[in-house]
Design a protein around this nucleic acid. Structure first.
Lengths: 204, 204
DNA sequence: GCCAGTATTGACACTGAGTGACAGATAGTC
DNA sequence: GACTATCTGTCACTCAGTGTCAATACTGGC
């Protein structure tokens, strides 16, 4: 488990497991997008994936997880992009530029992205969990990178500066995502993000 | 329904309903804090409140709702405080000062506040929904106030500036809440909030 | 004070998510 | 080919949440 991070594959058996998991996710998302999240039962997903209901829960801890699974990849993308920015750049600008990677991915398949956003919005519980996980994943991954670039922390108590920066930027992303949902799939994500982030702190 | 907002009371019948709802919330929170959220069943709450299981769901749409119900009051507090700030003050400072009202409330009963925070943290699904609702409620209530004080919006597309400001501030609050959870019930919420918000944008 | 109309309640039944236990199938090892 | 560990499906269960219905309490008008 604690071995191959981005390696080609772990063991022979592990590869099969990964493939089945991916297939369940694919089939599940298809059904969710077609029929909605709540109306789609685990039974249906399992049947469509050719496994039993019980086995579904051996691959995903919950129905939510099928939708939420996308997030870990996203966080990795942002972290990579952030680490690649010059160390002397303003942190707020670095964050804005790091999001470009995600924006590009979203714009590459506007329909899929819009569908996912609508799905998230339709189910209150999902939406909240998605936002919270995104926050946690991005803060955990991105804050340490930023913290190393900030001037030394003076004063008592923990240093919250880097985490606050990331969380604030994420707040902007969330507002933009809401706006894009209202605007339709052709919204200019990048321009709206520029506007939102510049309102909080000038982009140098 | 669409009448008394903060009025003393609606009808005679409405008052009884409100009282029962409050009693369920009180009893429910007590059980949650004592035994945890998931281990506590709706059956137990209903029994402790002297009603049937079915009636519980006539007062709260879900078990989550019992915990989440606190939020609407909080949003109202912040909105009031924000509206009371001078119109020519920097919006970021206004937001920081508006949070003072919530900080004061939290510090008035540190134990209760810490318990609630711990409860939220213990249950992933709850935590996400809480954050999401808080965001939505605060953005909806506070953004219009701020928007009226901002210079006119130029350029195409919707004006996201006020919402972005509120969401960014809320991100800082969320980071501080996490930190306070790690620090214990005696953490200096106000000072940490100053630090976090100042890192994103100088508090003038 | 009495009588209709309405809202509230408890009881019952049901669906669906999630979990535990167990037996059989299916791989990988010697 | 026997041995062992893992994976799988089946069954049974708890609990959240919802629809239905009959009984009951409260509202109004007379």
């Amino acid at each position: 488990m604690g071995q191959g991070t981005a390696a080609p594959a772990g063991g022979l058996r592990e590869r099969a497991r990964r493939a089945i998991r991916a297939e369940i996710a694919r089939v599940g998302m298809e059904l969710f997008l077609r029929n909605g999240f709540e109306p789609t039962t685990v039974e249906e997903i399992a049947a469509a994936a050719g496994i039993s209901r019980r086995s579904f829960f051996r691959y995903f801890a919950s129905k939510d997880e099928v939708v939420l699974a996308h997030l870990d990849e996203l966080a990795a993308t942002v972290t990579e992009a952030l680490a690649a920015r010059p160390a002397d750049e303003d942190p707020w600008v670095s964050l804005r530029r790091a999001f470009d990677a995600v924006v590009a991915e979203a714009e590459a398949d506007r329909a899929a992205n819009y569908g996912l956003t609508r799905l998230l919005n339709e189910t209150e519980a999902l939406r909240g969990q998605y936002a919270e996980r995104q926050k946690r994943a991005w803060v955990e991954a991105a804050a340490p990178i930023l913290a190393a670039r900030l001037p030394p922390h003076a004063g008592p108590g923990p240093d919250l500066r880097a985490e606050a920066l990331v969380a604030a930027a994420l707040g902007c992303v969330s507002i933009v995502a809401d706006a894009c949902l209202a605007c339709g799939p052709e919204a200019d994500f990048a321009a709206l993000l520029d506007q939102a982030m510049a309102a909080v702190r000038p982009l140098s």
